[in-house]
């Protein structure tokens, strides 16, 4: 069963096309990383997947249903997004913000029941911010705030997570702990995760499959070993890199090379 399918999607903002004829199928339970240079259309792909921007051609299917046929509430019960755009400097308490994740499950009056409280408590527990429940979000550290918004997404009880650079602004410790949460959800609860990641090495370490985007098209897709080759990376990022196996996970690791050390590559 495919969690989300993009069928030759073309879309963009106004007249400019950002994605051109992109097709991608993500199976339920997969952990997929979207990588590519700035402006290659990674975030646009997520926006197209949630119907925030409409496709000019092609279509997006979520659990086999066209997103255009789903109401925004129904869609929010199937897809949870951890967005970069979220206002982090909120005066609301941690618990209130996590409770906002219940929005697609509430009626017009917005009344919450015991089940909602239970789901939120579990979400806060899972990302380890339960002890901060009554604190205003704006008083927390960046890493803690990021976990609060992950708890909010968890409270949506959706089967599919779309993450838009969930590790930006985080130090390496928090980067690993944020992605560990999603790996755990992915492994233990078979949640599907599609993450836009800036860091190729994080993508390599955490993803089953990596999709490399360039200029609005899919340049390569496959296991980290297949996609994260120096040929692919150099062609897309226009810089020289060295790829070696990372000793702990055995996944490819990308090393950057400063321009004054660029030398012609020895023939293989």
């Amino acid at each position: 069963m495919d969690a989300i399918v993009l069928e030759s999607v073309t879309c963009g903002y106004g007249r400019s096309e950002v994605l051109r004829d992109v097709s991608l199928a993500v199976s339920a339970g997969e952990f997929v990383g979207l990588v590519g240079p700035n402006g290659c259309g990674k975030t646009t792909l997520l926006r197209a997947a949630t119907g925030i921007i409409p496709c000019t051609r092609g279509r997006v299917l979520v659990n086999g249903t066209d997103v255009r046929a789903l109401s925004s509430r129904e869609l929010a019960r199937r897809i949870a997004v951890v967005s970069q755009e979220v206002q982090m400097d909120l005066a609301f308490s941690v618990e209130e913000v996590a409770m906002m994740g219940r929005t697609p499950h509430l009626t017009l009056a917005g009344r919450r029941n015991a089940h909602d409280a239970e789901v939120v408590a579990r979400a806060l527990d899972l990302v380890d911010v339960k002890h901060l429940a009554d604190r205003p979000v704006r008083e927390l550290s960046l890493g803690e705030r990021q976990r609060v918004f992950i708890a909010m997404a968890l409270a949506q009880e959706a089967g599919l997570f779309l993450l838009d650079e969930p590790t930006t602004h985080l130090d390496i410790g928090h980067q690993v702990s944020a992605l560990d949460i999603f790996r755990k959800l992915n492994r233990e609860r078979e949640m599907t995760v599609v993450a836009v990641l800036h860091d190729l090495n994080l993508a390599s370490m955490y993803c089953d499959r990596v999709v490399l985007l360039s200029e609005g098209r899919i340049r390569a897709a496959g296991t980290p070993h297949e996609v994260l080759t120096y040929q692919n990376i150099e062609a897309v990022y226009k810089t020289v890199v060295v790829v070696r196996e990372e000793p702990v996970t055995g996944r490819p690791h990308v090393f950057l090379v400063p321009k004054d050390r660029w030398t012609p590559r020895a023939p293989a």
Binding site: T50, I52, S71, S72, R73, E74, L75, A76, R77, I79, A80, V81, S83, E85, V86, Q87, L90, F92, E96, V97, M100, G101, T103, P104, L106, G110, Q156
Partner: peptide
């Protein structure tokens, strides 16, 4: 309560099913 959700930002609110 809808205004509360809107405080997250327009796109995050849309992701939570708010029109």
């Amino acid at each position: 309560w809808v205004l509360n959700v809107l405080a997250l930002g327009e796109e995050p609110a849309a992701h939570l099913g708010i029109r």
